[in-house]
Design a protein around this nucleic acid. Structure first.
Lengths: 145, 145
DNA sequence: AAGGTAAATGAGACTCAATAGCATTTATAC
DNA sequence: GTATAAATGCTATTGAGTCTCATTTACCTT
């Protein structure tokens, strides 16, 4: 039936799943389940939070979506897996998320007490002040903190 | 009054705070608020979860304790800040936590779209299979997954 | 050492992200 | 088209973490 390029292998194609994927494809930043739900509704379609969670869980399991838990941000966010290895920096004042262009793990071998440990991957998050919030930068947003 | 070596600067010394600190000092791994609460009760003292949370929050703010949010582990864990920069590897099968001896960020400069971003710190977590759980190692624990 | 006071705690209610349950609907195989 | 296993709609529940407020406590002052 063509056109299902990008559809995760071996998954039934249902309306809610298509909606979630569509929203994530258009997203320019990781989104929470609630945000995804709202975006679908804003697009004129019904959406239920529990269904969104179920779909996201499935997509994550299939590797089509990445789940990200930024510290200080109590809710999990999700992004399409575009298969670029990627990390984010988060502003501790405004909580905005900035993608990083490089990764420190490229040429690094962790040293563990358990030397049998089989490393499969890593998560990294950098935190600090973004340009607008940096107090040393006169960032007015920083006053909130 | 001597003896308050290691007590966080400028904090009233109360029973509950002493208990929390004591538990964290003895801990050989990061602990959840609930685990800390149980440990105090096991020591024969009363302990309330809301108080433990309040104390931990305060200690974190004062820099005496680190809060760690490992992915896949839904609860936050806390450890005494021993002022060694440290990261952990977590087993995706048994969820045990292994301290890492080195850090990839030592000689690394993140490259961000916002080049005004002021980096203050980072969190890193490595995941994989520990020696006991590694399927390629005949790890029987891996069957659970 | 006693008293005053601001801060901390005890105890429980509450919030809200995330999950579980179950009746109904829907996608795909036949 | 029909069967049927899976997905969804929708509600209720869970559980980590927070909030509230009356009571208690640490510690400063005298």
């Amino acid at each position: 039936m063509g056109e299902d390029r990008g559809w995760p292998e071996g998954l039934k194609k249902t309306k809610p799943r298509e909606h979630v994927l569509e929203v994530l494809e258009k997203a320019d930043k990781p989104m929470s389940a609630m945000e995804i739900c709202s975006a679908i509704e804003k697009g004129g379609n019904a959406s239920w939070i529990s269904t969104v969670y179920r779909i996201l869980e499935l997509f994550v399991k299939k590797g089509a979506v990445n789940k990200i838990n930024m510290m200080g941000n109590e809710v999990a966010v999700f992004e399409l897996n575009r298969f670029h290895h990627k990390h984010y920096a988060v502003c501790i004042s405004c909580h905005k998320i900035f993608p990083m262009r490089n990764c420190p793990m490229e040429r690094f071998l962790p040293s563990l007490d358990d030397d049998e440990f089989h490393v499969l991957g890593h998560n990294l998050e950098v935190y600090g002040y973004c340009g607008r919030c940096d107090p040393e930068n006169g960032g007015e947003e920083a006053a909130k903190e």
